[in-house]
Amino acid sequence: MKISVIIPTLNCEKTIGELLKRLKSQTQKADEIIVVDSESNDRTVEIAEKEGAKVIKIARREFAHGSTRNLAVENARGDVVIFLTQDALPYDEYLIENITKPLEKEDIVAAYGRQIIDEKAIPTEIFARSFNYPEKGIIKSKENIKELGVKAFFFSNVCSAIKKKEFEQVGKFPLKIIMNEDMIIASKFILKGYKIAYVPEAKVIHYHNYSLIEQFKRNFDIGVFFSENEWILQYGKAEKEGIKYLKEEVKFLWQKNKLWIAYAILEDISRYSGYRLGLMHKYLPKSVKLNLSMNKNYWLN
């Protein structure tokens, strides 16, 4: 199968060169690497072109998590498209090989990889990666919804691989969405009877040491997402997963670094308050939402 790698970019000259070099050293080579750049004003485009990537340029205000990736897929010649973010560095040379291997099975149409940390990650972020991206893999299908709830649809375009034919058949990503376009495509696949795979052997170094304000803003956007896609919540409440997360986090930090428990509680308060406000965003003026949101482009468009 032919493989296209897709990377949306904006001002990432510090990471894009290393990312593309690591992709070119893979045991399984990509047939093409497509960079979709949103008017970077640094050397991102220059570096990408120098490393042999095909660059598609769009206006910054045109960027959207769904439509921008759809545009790249429309210009891709691969049977399989691999999505990466600009700050996700392949851990080793087996990333493409491992992330595409499950797609050799007819009923598995998508796969996502494991996000790991390096020595710069703070303790709460170390826990976040281990909670969401464990060492054990799983194949998720309709049968898992009762057990996993909304977590059955968990999927990440930080590092994912999707069969292009089935991607187009289910209607691609939503054109306008604040975030979680990956969760939407995963839910489409699973509810259509397909399977998706979590592949822990496919590893990228990726995390964010967000401040409390950044956590609030990110989770405001998550609340907006669920407010505008309420149908997903019929399969399980996001709050239930949040309570489980907090309990496991405190247990983890008690064993590893007790001094971070107070910070973790503040962080979770920031997350939850942002999420709840996002759920009620329809009652807020646009000017307020612009200040509360991490994805300002969504409101400007």
Rank of each mutant, 00 (worst) to 15 (best):
N98T: 08
Y235A: 08
F189I: 03
P8I: 10
A238W: 15
I196M: 10
A186H: 01
K192A: 15
I269P: 05
N70D: 07
S141D: 14
N301H: 15
R218G: 03
I117Q: 13
K203D: 07
E46K: 03
A59G: 15
L148W: 09
E51W: 01
L212E: 13
M183F: 06
R129A: 06
T44Y: 09
S187L: 03
I99P: 01
S160Q: 00
I190A: 12
A88S: 08
E119D: 14
W254D: 11
K258H: 08
K54L: 06
V204Q: 03
L277E: 04
K176P: 09
M294R: 05
N41K: 14
K142A: 14
F83N: 11
R276I: 15
I108H: 06
I122P: 15
K176N: 12
D31N: 05
A30C: 00
K163G: 02
F226E: 00
S211V: 12
I117D: 14
A202W: 08
W254V: 09
K142H: 06
L89R: 01
E74G: 15
K21R: 11
K2Q: 03
T68L: 04
K282A: 12
I178G: 04
C159H: 07
S187W: 03
P90T: 00
I108G: 07
L20K: 04
L300F: 02
E125F: 02
S156Y: 03
